[in-house]
Computed example of a mutant assay.
Amino acid sequence: MSIGNSPDGNSPEDERPFEDDREAEQLSIGRVLRQARIEAGLSVDDVSSATRVRVAIIHAIEQDDFAPCGGDVYARGHIRTVARAVHLDPVPLLARYDADHGGRPAPTPAAPLFEAERIRPERRGPNWTAAMVAAIVAVIGFVGFTVVKGSDGGDNTKTQVAEGSTPTAGKSAPPRSHTSKPADPKPDPSDSAIAAAPQDKVTVQVSATDGRSWISAKDHNGRMLFDGLLKKGDSKTFQDNTKINLILGDAGAIQLYVNGKKIEDAFQPGAVERLTYTKGDPQVG
């Protein structure tokens, strides 16, 4: 059976190249990234090794499937990271993504930040920081009472607690207790919380040292401990009986201390990292 020609003498097949030309003029984000990767002589494995983005996610992005990224925030972070790895400017690609997906994600409102702070003291695990502070306050009160009484036992007690607190009765303190203070400077509150963490728990401190970053932290039951933005210089400490699950929106801006140990992973700026830490030596889940 023959196929009839159009009135101008061209068959439908003759018109298809013009449609392909129009489609080529507007390459999708995934096709732009794939073409740049090929021109750079890189494989998907090469890009994954350079960016820490999983191979499956890179394949999905090159097919314009952003669902495996887990949301707009993560998708934008992956696009930025992959674009830099294949020597592209990520700004136009992010603008196109925002235009196709309803605009740039709105910043986290202030209310969840305060809500997260309110619910943290109510978690099921013991609050070791609060317990340590309460114990120090009780000991200082006892020391002040015994110093006023002038008892010898008060001198010994004050020497023991001078390491982690500021004495309230410095004027009447014996010289030997006063001279022992400089040997043990007052620790930073977050460092004290890590140092006091028991061996049967996991303690994670997250600090925004090189910029600001959105972070999310959950306990082993999946209950949210924090979900919000850390500004440069801010720090958060989380503790659980079994494990802490973290998501870092800009891992390159974050410094981690796990169970008192500094994590030396070279996180890339703008990279999104999902991490799990448990008891014992720090291990990325």
Score class of each variant (00 low, 15 high):
residue 87 H to P: 03
residue 280 G to D: 04
residue 101 H to S: 04
residue 258 V to C: 02
residue 126 P to E: 11
residue 122 E to Q: 14
residue 20 D to N: 13
residue 104 R to A: 05
residue 52 R to F: 14
residue 275 L to K: 03
residue 252 G to C: 02
residue 260 G to D: 09
residue 66 F to G: 05
residue 103 G to W: 11
residue 214 W to I: 11
residue 132 M to S: 11
residue 168 T to M: 02
residue 131 A to L: 14
residue 66 F to M: 08
residue 55 V to M: 00
residue 170 G to D: 13
residue 201 K to E: 06
residue 105 P to Q: 10
residue 215 I to T: 05
residue 44 V to I: 12
residue 272 V to P: 06
residue 24 A to V: 01
residue 90 P to G: 05
residue 203 T to R: 15
residue 230 L to Q: 00
residue 75 A to F: 02
residue 123 R to H: 10
residue 136 I to C: 08
residue 46 D to P: 01
residue 170 G to C: 08
residue 240 D to M: 06
residue 242 T to L: 14
residue 48 S to A: 15
residue 215 I to M: 06
residue 219 D to Q: 10
residue 169 A to W: 12
residue 151 S to H: 08
residue 94 L to F: 08
residue 232 K to M: 03
residue 268 Q to E: 14
residue 1 M to T: 07
residue 269 P to R: 10
residue 253 A to M: 09
residue 67 A to M: 05
residue 69 C to E: 03
residue 131 A to E: 15
residue 209 T to A: 12
residue 227 D to W: 04
residue 17 P to A: 04
residue 49 S to P: 00
residue 265 D to S: 14
residue 59 H to E: 11
residue 185 P to D: 08
residue 147 V to I: 14
residue 50 A to L: 14
residue 202 V to A: 02
residue 50 A to Q: 15
residue 212 R to I: 00
residue 229 L to V: 07
residue 209 T to W: 06
residue 92 P to M: 07
residue 227 D to P: 01
residue 180 S to E: 11
residue 50 A to H: 06
residue 265 D to N: 10
residue 130 A to K: 10
residue 173 A to V: 04
residue 17 P to C: 05
residue 231 K to T: 15
residue 188 D to T: 04
residue 212 R to D: 07
residue 74 Y to I: 10
residue 277 Y to V: 05
residue 279 K to Q: 05
residue 45 D to E: 12
residue 141 G to M: 07
residue 284 V to N: 08
residue 186 K to S: 15
residue 253 A to N: 11
residue 239 Q to H: 07
residue 158 K to M: 12
residue 136 I to H: 07
residue 34 R to M: 09
residue 96 R to N: 06
residue 146 T to A: 06
residue 29 I to S: 00
residue 231 K to F: 07
residue 115 E to A: 10
